[in-house]
Each structure stands twice: as structure tokens, then as C-alpha cells.
Amino acid sequence: MADIVNLRHARKQKTRAEKERLAEQNRALHGRSKAERERDRLTADMSEKFVAGHRREKPGEPDDRSIGPKSAQRLSDESDA
């Protein structure tokens, strides 16, 4: 005698299996271990420190030699006389 199969359950089970297969594939492609993430973070931090250490101006320091309309000396009519 044949087993009775509920087609709704079979369809849902097939969908779950497909999602699990796709998830496994994504874990293999995109998953990284904690050590790999930490290594990448440390490399990025070291690169940022290297670049920051070679900047001409330090962040937060006012630039006394800036050129532009706000830094230009104001001339008044009284100084011409």
C-alpha cells in the first residue's frame, strides 16, 4: 500500500531544504572567522594611524596660514586717509 503524502507539507519541506542549501552556500562564500575579522580590523587601524601620522596638519589645529576671503585683512576707508 502507498504512503499518503500531504502535498502542502511536501512543498513546504522542499522550500525549507532549498533555503537551507542556499544558506549553506552563502556561509561558505561570505562567512569569516572571528580571527579573520579581527585581523582585517587591526590592519585597517594600522593603515589609518600611518596615514594620520603623515598628515601635514594635525586634526583640530587651527590653520594660521589659511588663504581665503575669511582670512583676508579687512581694509577700511579710514586707513587710506
Rank of each mutant, 00 (worst) to 15 (best):
A2R: 06
A2S: 10
A2H: 07
A2L: 08
A2C: 03
D3V: 05
I4V: 11
I4R: 06
V5R: 06
V5Y: 02
N6F: 01
L7I: 01
R8C: 01
R8W: 02
R8M: 02
R8T: 04
H9F: 05
A10T: 00
R11I: 02
R11Q: 05
K12H: 04
Q13V: 00
Q13H: 02
K14Y: 07
K14C: 02
K14M: 03
K14D: 02
R16P: 00
A17L: 09
K19G: 03
E20Q: 11
R21E: 10
R21F: 06
L22C: 04
L22G: 02
A23V: 00
A23K: 13
E24T: 08
E24P: 01
N26R: 15
N26A: 15
R27T: 04
A28V: 14
L29V: 15
L29W: 03
L29H: 12
L29N: 07
H30D: 08
G31C: 12
G31Q: 13
G31P: 04
R32Q: 13
S33F: 06
S33K: 07
S33Q: 02
K34H: 05
A35F: 03
R37Y: 06
R37C: 03
R37K: 14
E38R: 14
R39V: 03
D40R: 15
D40E: 12
R41P: 00
R41H: 09
L42T: 06
L42H: 09
T43C: 05
T43V: 08
A44R: 13
A44M: 06
D45F: 09
D45R: 14
M46P: 00
S47V: 10
S47Y: 10
S47G: 05
E48L: 11
K49P: 00
K49T: 04
F50W: 06
V51P: 00
V51F: 08
A52I: 01
A52Y: 01
A52M: 05
G53F: 04
R55V: 00
E57T: 07
E57Y: 13
P59Y: 04
P59W: 01
G60R: 04
P62C: 05
D63Y: 05
D63C: 08
D64G: 10
R65I: 13
S66N: 07
G68M: 02
P69I: 09
P69T: 04
P69E: 14
P69M: 08
P69Y: 04
K70V: 07
S71A: 10
S71E: 08
A72G: 05
Q73Y: 03
Q73R: 13
R74L: 11
L75K: 15
L75W: 08
S76W: 13
S76D: 12
S76P: 00
D77H: 09
E78W: 12
E78S: 14
E78I: 08
E78A: 11
E78H: 11
E78F: 09
S79Q: 15
S79H: 10
S79A: 15
D80H: 11
A81F: 12
A81R: 12
